[in-house]
Design a protein around this nucleic acid. Sequence first.
DNA 1: CTAGGGTTAG
Length: 635
Amino acid sequence: MVCPLPCASLCMLSSFNIEQRHGSHISSKPISESPKTELFHKFNSPFELKQVHTLVIKTGMPISDLPLSRVASVCSLTPSFPYAQQIFQQVDQPETFIWNSCLRDFAESDSPFDAILLFYQMRRYNVLPDSFTCSFVLKACVRLQYLFHGRIIHAFVEKLGLQLNLVLLNVIVHLYASCGRINDAILLFDKMPQRDVVTWNTMITQLVKMGDIDSAYKMFVQMPDRNLRSWTAMIAGFVQCGKPKEAIALFTKMEEVGLKLNEVTVVAVLAACADVGALHLGRRIHDYSDKRGFTRNIHISNTLIDMYIKCGCLKAACDVFKNMKERTIVSWSAMIQGLAIHGKAKEALELFSEMICTGMKPNGVTFLGLLNACSHMGLINEGRSFFASMTKDYGIIPCIEHYGCMVDLLSRAGLLEEAHELIEQMPIKPNAAVWGALLGGCKVHKNIEMAEIAMRHLHELDPLNDGYYVVLSNIYSEAKKWEDAAKVRKMMRNRGLKKTIGWSSVTIGGTVHEFVAGDETHPQSKDIFKMWNHLLVYMRLKGYVPNTSVVLLDIEEEEKEKILFRHSEKLALVFGLINTPPGETIRICKNLRVCEDCHASFKLISSIVKREIVVRDRNRFHCFKDGYCSCKDYW
DNA sequence: CTAGGGTTAG
């Protein structure tokens, strides 16, 4: 925002022989013809203003020729600078313009409220506001979310006869919508005599912010013209509403229309790639960003890190991170979290130390990554000490997510009592995620009593989430308490809940293939089972015994095996093995957590076929290689 | 050369 080169202005000033500063004068040609346009926009500080003012006096130029917006800027930059104010007072025309310039700077400053104060002062001085006045004050209202003052300005706009000014109406629509008055915004939108692309784009983004993606998309389809911002807003909207597939589909359409991405679009599309694990597209966008020099943009690098991490390419994420000339806390936190979900707790902790050494201050998200790292590797003491340190050393108050991580850490490690105590004494009301973490630990450590305690709370806090019932029912089944398990399932039925069907996807040459558990309808189904049976021979030789205890149904062993062998991640893996060249890494995404039997199988298969298998599950990554998993079986 | 709309880590 602070632009023009004091250096150049000083050079020009020196040609008038006013004040010379440390010989920084490049011998310049006199600018006697048109000093006004050449020179007058080029001061940013009281010092430079003084120089220009001297020039004005020396050349006998009327003071009103000074660019008053800049004078006002200097005035507002340094409110205590009386010199600029003096100049200000010598000029009586055009008054509104001067006020507006000041309003603009205030509206964009750290205290937009000053713009509102100045506006009321302006009224007291009987200076007539114009459309620019309104736009600046409205901008301040939007930034402050001041609906009250905004409505006053809206009334003002009408009173001044500006009700047809499209720019103003667009800001007002933005104001109402962003203050949560979407209905007022729609009312105004509907009665506007004309709308332009900005009006539509504003509505789309604000509807997205309200979570109403359907209405947003309706508008997107309906609008007469779409520009790059419209597409970007809609793509980002899909991402924000948890519909990354739709985002990518829309991006494909955008390319078909022939539009090129800019930096903001790149960020949105990369975020979508991260969410669905679309490595292929992500890489393509990375190449494109490199070509266009976008990678210097911190936002883009940060999003690239996240994309690579969520696509299971830790190495690529590290490369991006290392190549960054500047990093923000987002870059560090993303990288720490990335190492955490890849089971590299030690590296995550080391990176944190490195970060502290550079003087970067951690925030709450950074600690979530650290706690996650500890939790995934069972580093209980480290986790406890980070949890204490975040408040003690960095003044960060833990929020509900941090408690969730701690409960997860403790209960995963089997310290269920301690986890329960932590929940009981936490200063915030525990939410479903917190109790859910405890329930998860109860499953691992087969603690029925504690599971029932957790469930009582979950019942109340998140009664429509099928996942918790499924876990509890599984805990009962594992303990062969079939009746209790059946009771839970009945409870689910009564509430109209269905168990979320497990699916896994595998990407081959940029195409995503999805498999649901038990799927036998795939065109290559025969080949898949043939290949599986083939693998099974080798697996058994290595000591594989199907872990049918994960099939929590009271049925025959043989039936259990059949179900087990049709788990979605197995189908996806075998399909991937058939359809990719030897040695190529297989990448699988699963919507739920990996099953224990699949985990054991994948370890064996990775060594049998000599391939890396990367599985992204609901919580983390498992990288299978040479018979081992990166999670070291702690998950 | 006084105005409005799109972006990242959990």
